[in-house]
Write a protein that binds this DNA or RNA. Structure first.
Lengths: 188, 188
DNA sequence: GAGACCGATGTCAGTCGCTGTCATCGTCAT
DNA sequence: ATGACGATGACAGCGACTGACATCGGTCTC
């Protein structure tokens, strides 16, 4: 066995999630997280840039997935269809509704965490925009297709997480996309 | 004359904007801002909840404007038209492109400030959603119309701010709305 | 296999954002 | 006058985050 217990990063993430759930984000100190993980505060900051990041580090997986899905969409697909294909791929990564719900409850309970979540979504939108431009879509169109796509994702994800919701994520995404089309096309 | 110089809040805001522009947001300490305004650090935090808020305190004006515009839209207007009317009213509050540009440069240069900006935009979207629901629009439709409207606003504002852009804000908003309609209606 | 090197962690001191608490002192109503 | 009020100052303290240096198993080199 090595000098240290394995998977320090994972232990920190789990300890943080537990403490944030039990006592709330603000009431939890980094020293407490590190102690529960059997490490020091300084080591926490070597693995995560700040106290919030421990909840969002997994987000890059979703971003990669979206970007690849847009790139892989058939040439015949228009911008919004390519985005729709990307959103549809989300359910291969968002499997466990219960843990998503718990994580979201922690985030929703704290303004700083909501801020971080928003910047992650904005980064997702940027990545989608860049991916669309890689398909030859113009700037303005790419931006709006990406932003609108993220709006759809936000709405659909919130419904998926909601208590009592029984539909699966792809279906909610499809419904939200259809609603967006209906809303936008009624512009006079 | 009173015991103190007048308009402490305004002096703090101006000092902060100057220092953030000159040395950057992170390199500026609250003590420095307070000193330039002839006050103490403690007093800064009596006027602004945190170091970032001094750049965003004016945002509630825009929110009020949007909400009132949605509420005042004619009954015949659909959700997206009511949102369009709200966005169109933005130029009565965003008058000085140059100071908007300078403020945006400060914000764009710092991740924490971008986070704060995003949560203000999200709050704007919530307010729009609530205003739409007050018109009898259903939840899903209201959310999507509001989110899509904010997406349009973001894109149009960014273009307005951009170097070399000569069109005015209402026109850019109109163009972005039209583009959104075109993008969304092409969903297959 | 001895020693140089490496990488994850610990230790410690320090800065800064932010808060609670109490003191200060013009102003204003009575 | 006097006492309540309100904006500010003074001060102590907590916690997030950082930089610098030490520690010590594992690994590589010769």
């Amino acid at each position: 066995m090595g000098r240290w217990q394995p998977n320090a990063r994972g232990r920190l993430a789990q300890a943080a999630m537990e403490l944030y759930s039990e006592h709330g984000f603000e009431q939890t100190t980094v020293a407490e997280i590190a102690k529960r993980a059997g490490l020091t505060e300084r080591t926490f900051f070597r693995h995560y840039a700040d106290k919030r990041e421990v909840l969002f580090a997994g987000g890059s997986v979703l971003e990669d997935l979206f970007v690849r899905a847009v790139a892989d969409a058939p040439d015949s697909a228009g911008p919004i269809d390519a985005v729709a294909a990307a959103l549809a791929a989300a359910d291969t990564v968002l499997l466990d509704r219960e843990s998503a719900r718990q994580r979201q409850a922690v985030i929703d309970a704290n303004a700083e965490l909501r801020e971080r979540e928003l910047i992650k979504l904005a980064s997702l939108a940027s990545a989608l925009t860049a991916a669309l431009r890689g398909r030859g879509v113009t700037d303005l169109t790419a931006s709006l297709a990406a932003e609108a796509g993220i709006a759809v994702f936000k709405v659909a994800f919130a419904r998926w997480i909601a208590e009592g919701e029984r539909k699966d994520l792809p279906r909610l995404i499809r419904e939200s996309l259809d609603e967006l089309r209906a809303v936008a096309s009624s512009l006079s």
